[in-house]
């Protein structure tokens, strides 16, 4: 077989990355047209925000192997920092967005710097503690955050005006969905590039065995801080979008249970892959909605899905897809 033929066999057309991104862009473009009505369009945007959250956690947990239960805090910090800058200081949206992302990323790096010697359960507890403290600060620093009273009337991102075309206003929920989903796709692209570079090799080496990683010259402390910084910044971006999308902000949106929901999305989807958490986030966002009709039973179904995945499909949806693919003879 020629090199090109081998490459085609290993990377068939339907698995090509460029086509994958193109298909994703088309799906994003088509979704609001297929799922019309306020209810669905709201859910679509929530899906995109949750995908961002899951991608950020997966970078820390699935790639660097660090059990981070503080994702809800980075989410909340991104939301509050950007919103306070906009509502109190009149900072333009995109500058506030950048500040929210940077602040969340910095918080992740600081947490990692202190927790860098901790592993497994201890890191989980430390990061959960960070989420609890952050929530308490958002709740009790009333002068700044208005606590449980909440912040209202958060404006949408400024309209985009292109000369010669009608202005694109983000008061339109479809436009806002396109914005959030577009940024999510960009984040996916960036993370995908990173994990397919030596950075990905370095992070997975740390995940697999830290002592070995150090014996290959890897500064494990530094790279863990890096992974936390990136993953927390992505969580912060999700927070900025959440605030502008919902228009009101209360601390309860960032209670620690949110960390576990995001964790479930990553696990159900398949951690250590980027595509897995995307589907995990969409599934676990829509499943409770689909099951709304059965009332409180939906929480049971939700819990059962999670338990079944952990017990029988520890690789999540990605593993399930591989098994099915192999049965159908699609994979190599």
């Amino acid at each position: 077989m020629s090199d090109a033929a081998i490459s085609r066999a290993v990377h068939p057309w339907w698995a090509s990355r460029r086509l994958g991104f193109l298909a994703a862009a088309l799906v994003i473009a088509a979704l609001p047209m297929m799922l019309t009505g306020n209810y669905w369009q709201t859910n679509l945007t929530i899906c995109a925000i949750n995908v961002l959250l899951a991608l950020g956690l997966d970078f820390i947990l699935g790639y660097a192997g660090q059990l981070n239960l503080g994702q809800s805090a980075f989410y909340g910090l991104g939301a509050y920092v950007s919103t306070l800058l906009i509502t109190r200081l009149g900072v333009p949206f995109w500058a506030a967005f950048a500040a929210g992302v940077a602040f969340a990323g910095l918080a992740g790096m600081i947490l990692a710097t202190f927790a860098v010697r901790l592993r497994g359960h201890y890191l989980a507890i430390a990061s959960l503690g960070f989420a609890v403290i952050t929530y308490q600060i958002l709740l009790n620093w009333i002068n700044l955050t208005q606590g449980p009273l909440g912040i209202y009337a958060i404006p949408p991102p400024p309209a985009i005006t292109i000369p010669g075309l009608p202005a694109i206003s983000f008061r339109n929920p479809v436009a806002l969905f396109y914005l959030v989903a577009g940024v999510t796709l960009l984040v996916y692209f960036i993370l995908d590039q990173l994990v397919r570079s030596p950075i990905g090799e370095t992070l997975t080496a740390i995940r697999e065995d830290e002592v070995s990683a150090a014996s290959l010259g890897i500064n494990t402390a530094l790279w863990k801080v890096f992974a936390f910084g990136v993953g927390a910044a992505v969580g912060g971006a999700a927070g900025c979008f959440y605030a502008t999308f919902v228009g009101t902000l209360v601390p309860d949106a960032f209670f620690i249970t949110e960390s576990f929901t995001i964790l479930a999305m990553v696990i159900v989807g398949g951690m250590g892959t980027l595509i897995g958490p995307v589907f995990g986030a969409v599934l676990l966002t829509l499943l409770p909605e689909v099951l709304r009709g059965v009332g409180d039973l939906r929480l049971m179904v939700y819990g059962a899905v999670l338990t079944l995945v952990v017990l029988f499909m520890p690789g999540g949806l990605v593993q399930a897809a591989r098994v099915v693919g192999a049965r159908l003879g699609l994979s190599r």
């Binding site: 030596p198 370095t202 997975t204 080496a205 990683a213 010259g217």
Partner: peptide
């Protein structure tokens, strides 16, 4: 990939 990880300091 195990061996490739060994090139960490040489990129």
């Amino acid at each position: 990939d195990n061996v490739v990880a060994g090139f960490h300091v040489h990129h």
